[in-house]
């Protein structure tokens, strides 16, 4: 019989390999010279030719630029709306319609994308039919659709962060003479800033990554990067997508590792300071 420690370690190693080996294989094959993705051309590899092919592919670059713009606007709008929603749910106490708002903000978290995509498109078609707006579909419609599902994630993140803080902090500020708007900007906002930042990143990633909803609400003229990738890979493997994937993994890994190290340093400093305070007593 396996000891418990060994069992846990095995579970982790197997599980993490399952998560990482596919990504690793993509990275490896992005340096493969052969067009046949699966055959390693040892003679001429590693090569950077797929990376240069990628960077000279105007179609992909345009799509990437559109995706970045949509993701940035989506993330910013989601953060504003999601923060307000999170604040309302966590701090405004009971009000009529609170349960509905709570429901509406959590539903998109699990809603199948095809349903969200279809319903958004039908709304835009009906709106265009009725009032002539939105005139055609593209950047604006994709962004609206993305904000709608991203704001739920931001709401949950902000709401949980607020729930971890005592209401009395805001009450204390009121008690010391700060008006509600001032309380929000000098107390609440600084406290939830980490949640707002991670909410922004989350919304950016979700928007950047979305293919199904975009496919519904994008017009024929607008293609986001995932839409381009999707139509490419539906036809089978293509090595330049491997290169693209590798770049994205590298960027993300760099960001996540840096931010984690940074957060950990902050945390460690905080712990140290707390220990010192305890040692000092008083």
């Amino acid at each position: 019989m396996m000891s418990r420690g060994r069992f846990r370690k095995t579970a982790l190693v197997v599980g993490l390999s399952f998560l990482y080996l596919p990504i690793l294989s993509m990275i490896v094959f992005s340096f493969n010279n052969s067009r046949l993705v699966t055959v390693w051309d040892a003679a001429h590899s590693p090569t950077l030719k797929w990376y240069s092919a990628l960077l000279s592919n105007g179609h992909i670059l345009d799509a990437a630029w559109l995706s970045i713009r949509i993701a940035a606007v989506t993330a910013t709008l989601s953060v504003v709306l999601g923060t307000v929603a999170g604040l309302v749910l966590a701090r405004f106490g009971p009000f009529r319609g609170r349960a509905l708002l709570a429901g509406l903000t959590t539903a998109p978290l699990v809603m199948p994308e095809v349903i969200t995509g279809l319903s958004m498109l039908l709304l835009f078609v009906a709106l265009e039919h009725a009032i002539g707006w939105p005139d055609g579909r593209g950047f604006v419609t994709i962004t609206i659709a993305h904000v709608t599902f991203c704001l739920s994630y931001v709401t949950v993140v902000v709401q949980s962060r607020l729930a971890g803080f005592d209401d009395s902090l805001e009450e204390a500020a009121l008690d010391l003479g700060a008006r509600p708007a001032r309380v929000f900007f000098s107390i609440t906002l600084p406290l939830i800033l980490p949640a707002i930042i991670s909410g922004w990143l989350l919304a950016f990633t979700l928007s950047w990554d979305d293919v199904v909803i975009s496919q519904f609400v994008a017009g024929p003229s607008a293609s986001t990067l995932p839409m381009v990738i999707f139509s490419k890979v539906r036809l089978g493997v293509s090595p330049d997508v491997n290169a693209l994937a590798s770049i994205m993994v590298a960027v993300v890994a760099l960001c996540v590792v840096c931010s984690t190290l940074w957060m950990r340093r902050l945390e460690r400093r905080r712990q140290l300071e707390e220990q010192m305070a305890r040692a000092a007593g008083g």
Binding site: S168, L169, D175, A178
Partner: peptide, 19 residues
């Protein structure tokens, strides 16, 4: 409103602004 009362409060949790 609380912010205009000639009253101040010391909270049970102290409610010191952590930042």
């Amino acid at each position: 409103p609380p912010y205009e009362r000639p009253v101040n409060m010391m909270f049970q949790s102290y409610a010191l602004f952590p930042h």
